[in-house]
Amino acid sequence: MTDEILIDKFLKGHTEAFNTLVWRWEKPLYNFILRYLGDSEQAKDVLQNTFIRAYKSLPRLKDHSRFSTWLYQIAHNQCHDCWKARRHDNLNMADLENDEDENQSERKTIVDPDSGPDKSALNSEIAEYLRRALLMIPEEQRVVIIMKEYHGLKFIEIEAILQIPLNTIKSRLYYGLSAMQKIFRQWGLDREDLRYEM
C-alpha cells in the first residue's frame, strides 16, 4: 500500500493507517535524526515530535505525493531547532573538539584492524568515530551529506526539502566531504585496508 493510499485512509478517520506510515518511516527518519544530532536519546525525542507534528499537520498537506519530502522537512526543522538549543548549552562542540586530541592518541587502535579480535566491536568503534566526525562539520554541510550518503536522495529532492539552490547543495557537499576527508586522514580512517575490514 502506497503512502498516498495510507494518507487518504488516515484522512477518512483510520488512525491505524498513520501508524503504518510511522512504522514505515520511523527507521529512516530515526537514522537521519541520529546522524544529525549524534545522540540516540535526543534522536528518539525528536523523532517522536516529528511524528506528532506530522499527525497534527497531515490534513493540511495538499500534495500527498510529497509526503516523504514533507516528513523530512519536519524532521529537519525539528533537528535544526534542537541543534540550535543545544549549541547554547555549551556542551557539544567544544567538548567534541577537545575529544579530537584524544582521538589522535587512539589512532593506532583504530587503524590497525589486525589488533582487534572482535570485528563488530571495531565496527561500532568506527561508527562512533563517524558520529563524532559528522558533528564536527558545520550543520548545513552535515545535513546534505546525511541526505546524500545515507538516504540516497537526489539533488532535486534535497532541494525540495531544504529549499536551497542546487548549486548551494553541491557546494556544501563538496566542502563537507572535504572536511570529513581531512578529519578521517587525521584519525587514520582513510586507509584502504581499514575499509576492507569494515
Binding site: 537514522n31 528518539k44 517522536q48 551529506i145 545515507y150 578521517f184 580512517l189 582513510d190 569494515m198
Partner: peptide, 23 residues
C-alpha cells in the same frame, strides 16, 4: 579521495529506533 570518504561514511550502519510509537 572524495569517493574514498564517501565509502568510509557508509561504515556507519543504520540503527533501529525500537520506539513503538502508536497513535
Amino acid at each position: 579521495t572524495l569517493r574514498t570518504t564517501s565509502q568510509t561514511l557508509h561504515s556507519w550502519p543504520d540503527a533501529d529506533p525500537s520506539l513503538n510509537l502508536t497513535f
